[in-house]
Amino acid sequence: MKVALFIPCYIDQFYPKVGIATLELLEKLGCEVVFPENQTCCGQPMANSGYEHETEGCTSNFQNNFDEYEYIVAPSGSCTLHIKEHIPIKGKIYELTEFITDILKIETLEGSFPHKVGLHQSCHGLRGLFTAQMSELNAPQFSKPEQLLKNFKGIELIKLSRKDECCGFGGTFCVTEEAVSVRMGQDRVADHLKNGTEILTGGDTSCLMHLEGIIRREKHDIKVMHIAEILNQAIS
């Protein structure tokens, strides 16, 4: 299966390892992965700030790069949601874990990852893309990222006190509402600390960057990895 990879701008610049892990993982799962080289940003940060009308350039650049592909995959729930809702394309875009479970139809992955892993459910992945059941709804439970992680040898998935509360990143919110943003992040980190997380993971690098920024500033003993990195490492 041919897959076009969308690597959001901040991953490209600051977390290339997430992009590399995504690419390698998809290749291991049998995909032919291409990276359209002139891709930039989906335009979400501007749109969420009220400047959707300024994102036409981003939109057309995205279309130019991706219109020829049937399957587009991104290691980011947030960007995926924006593209789904705001950029008309011929093919379809998927967040990494939903692509693996829903399109590659992989029920479970075999491998080893002997660590205590705490999953941060990003809001856009969760409530926008339904990568897991939302805590507010009276509906059957499921979780696509957990489904992929849970069978690894030695892994312990940490149960959080608040399983899907927002981390407070929120795009430009992280600086326009700095005090609340940081406090929300601190509270998420505290939940992971309290319940024994050694490695904090998730499907959105933006949330993870925010949480990692707090963890490093406060010198907590938690390592942060994108779920692509864990999956790629565990199955190798």
Binding site: S49, C166, F169, G170, F173, V180, S181, M184
Partner: peptide
Amino acid sequence: FASTLCGSCSN
């Protein structure tokens, strides 16, 4: 703008 657009409210 005083929101992260997390969507819990709608749920």
